[in-house]
Measured scan of single mutants.
Amino acid sequence: KTSLNPNDLGPLPPGWEERIHLDGRTFYIDHNSKITQWEDPRLQNPAITGP
């Protein structure tokens, strides 16, 4: 199984920011909706992941 390299996905969507949590995990901030999440928003785009 090959793992996706986030660098291959291009930039984050407008308004998003990638940060490192105190425990070392990466999380994502959506400044548009004022939410945070652990999942990379680029992986949730149907145009990238397919049907």
Rank of each mutant, 00 (worst) to 15 (best):
L43V: 11
R25S: 12
Q44S: 12
W38R: 09
I29H: 01
A47W: 06
P13F: 02
E17S: 07
G15K: 04
Q44R: 12
P6L: 12
G50R: 09
I35W: 06
Y28H: 02
P14L: 08
P13R: 01
H31G: 07
T26N: 09
H31C: 10
H31S: 11
I20G: 06
F27H: 09
L43S: 12
P11Y: 02
W38H: 10
S3G: 05
E39N: 13
W38M: 10
D8K: 13
G10C: 06
H21F: 04
P41F: 00
P41G: 01
D8M: 06
T36H: 14
Q44I: 13
P11T: 10
I35R: 14
H21M: 10
I35G: 06
P46M: 15
T2S: 13
R25W: 01
S3T: 09
F27L: 12
W38A: 13
I29G: 03
Y28L: 01
T26E: 04
H31Y: 04
S33G: 05
R42K: 05
L4P: 06
R25K: 10
Y28V: 01
N32G: 11
E17P: 00
G24K: 03
H21W: 12
N5I: 07
A47P: 14
N5T: 08
G24M: 00
P13A: 03
H31W: 04
W16H: 05
S3L: 05
S33L: 08
S3W: 00
T36L: 03
P46H: 11
W38E: 14
Q44T: 11
S3V: 05
R42H: 02
D40S: 03
P46C: 11
T49C: 07
Q37L: 01
R19W: 05
P14M: 07
S33F: 03
H21L: 06
E17Q: 05
A47C: 12
P51S: 05
P46N: 07
Q44C: 10
H21V: 06
T36C: 15
D8Y: 08
R25H: 05
E17H: 09
P51V: 02
I48F: 06
R19M: 07
L12R: 00
G15F: 03
Q37P: 03
F27W: 05
P11S: 11
R19E: 08
H21A: 15
H21N: 07
I29P: 04
L4Q: 13
P14D: 14
P51N: 06
L22Q: 15
D40A: 03
N5G: 09
P6T: 15
A47K: 08
G10W: 04
I29L: 09
N7T: 13
T49S: 11
I20T: 15
N32M: 09
S33Q: 08
N7L: 08
S3D: 11
F27P: 05
E18V: 06
T36E: 10
D23A: 01
D30M: 01
L4G: 10
P46K: 14
N32D: 10
I35N: 12
I29Q: 09
S3P: 06
D23G: 05
P11H: 02
L22W: 09
P13E: 03
P41N: 00
Y28F: 05
R25G: 07
D8P: 08
D23N: 12
G15A: 05
R42M: 01
K34V: 02
R25C: 05
L12H: 00
Q37N: 03
P46W: 07
P6E: 14
R42G: 02
D40E: 02
G15M: 04
Q44H: 09
T2V: 05
D40T: 00
E39C: 08
R25N: 09
L4I: 10
A47E: 13
I35V: 09
D23F: 00
D30Q: 04
I35K: 14
N32V: 12
P41T: 00
L4F: 13
L9F: 07
K1Q: 01
P6G: 14
L12Y: 01
P46F: 07
D40M: 02
Q37K: 05
N45K: 14
G10K: 07
H21G: 15
P6Q: 08
P11V: 08
Q44F: 08
T36D: 03
K34Q: 14
N32E: 13
L12A: 02
P41R: 01
W16C: 03
P13W: 01
E17I: 04
L12G: 00
L12P: 02
W16T: 03
N45Q: 11
G24S: 03
E17A: 01
W16V: 03
N7R: 12
L4A: 08
L12S: 02
D23K: 06
I20R: 13
G50D: 14
P46S: 12
L4H: 07
A47L: 11
P14K: 12
G10D: 07
T26A: 12
P46L: 15
T2Y: 13
D40I: 02
I48W: 00
S33H: 15
N7S: 12
Q37S: 13
G50P: 08
T49P: 10
G24L: 00
W16I: 02
N32I: 14
N7E: 13
F27C: 12
D8C: 14
T36I: 04
H21Q: 13
R42S: 02
H31N: 15
P46Y: 06
T26S: 11
L43F: 11
L22H: 15
Q37M: 07
L43E: 12
P46T: 12
